[in-house]
Write a protein that binds this DNA or RNA. Structure first.
Lengths: 150, 150
DNA sequence: TCTAAGTATGGACACTGTCCATAATCGGGG
DNA sequence: CCCCGATTATGGACAGTGTCCATACTTAGA
């Protein structure tokens, strides 16, 4: 299943460079990693890489569909290699933890809006906001729970 | 249903100030407005308001559930007063146009992830990414799609 | 090997959003 | 009606993320 990084780059028409390989591997090894984490990981693999090269590499990879960019509100962009399977994300409002979840309905019903207004929709991004078990436990004041109820 | 701005503020336990009224009206009049637009609109109504006051007022309104914050990737935060009806958004990747769309399935099936991992989910945000009719028309090169040169 | 195009680098910069201390305003009580 | 405490507004400075630019290097193909 897992094609090698150089292979993926090559088959996407991208030049194969040490930086891109490192970035791609970093994203693969650290799903949902931020640019900083990716840069850090890549750096530990090839010694040095500039911040801009990381941005550039990620942009190229996203453009080619090898990597998916997730940009939750109030958080820097994150990246993952799990593409093309229409899964969604679950984010904790408190600690920012991000988890993958499969599409609620199985495949892609929510991929099609009721009225598309003539748009050419290519992606449906679904983000579930809430609080993770840890944060729920840690703030055990069911009384003082500032009512986020809708 | 349409309570006046001062009324809404009052019933939410917020102090009624000219700034907040102006901000609330601005959001009501300009759905999906950015902070800048809100500030500008409010400013034209009451003469002057600081940027921070706008941020603060919006934060207070969001906190009280009078206003909903939308923060699409690659775009500054936007705000709308249409809350509590589980509608989603359709965004054009090219020009950033943002439209409301009703939930694809009618009510809230997509509000519940398949596996919630113990999370306490309070909101499901759905964003459809694509290209609006105008942008599709303008870049009539279905062959050379990646023509971002505008 | 040689060449052209693509890529990496580092610097500077723009933008959104936040923090802080102070001054003004609001709402309630006397 | 006036005063007081608490909330809110203001402006300044600042942090973080992401982008633009010119230059030097590397890649892929002839």
């Amino acid at each position: 299943m897992t094609s090698s990084a150089p292979d993926l780059l090559r088959s996407s028409g991208l030049h194969v460079t040490a930086q891109r390989i490192a970035v791609l591997r970093a994203v693969t090894d650290h799903p949902h990693a931020t640019v900083e984490v990716v840069a850090d990981t890549a750096r530990s693999e090839i010694g040095a890489i500039s911040r801009q090269s990381v941005y550039d590499a990620l942009a190229a990879l996203v453009d080619k569909g090898l990597v998916r960019r997730i940009q939750p509100a109030g958080s820097p962009a994150r990246f993952e290699t799990r593409v093309g399977d229409n899964h969604h994300h679950l984010i904790c409002r408190d600690c920012g933890t991000l988890l993958d979840v499969d599409c609620a309905v199985g495949y892609t019903p929510c991929l099609t809006p009721a009225q598309d207004a003539g748009f050419e929709v290519d992606e449906a991004e679904v983000v579930y906001w809430g609080r993770c078990p840890d944060c729920i436990t840690n703030s055990t004041t069911p009384d003082n729970q500032e009512d986020h109820s809708v």
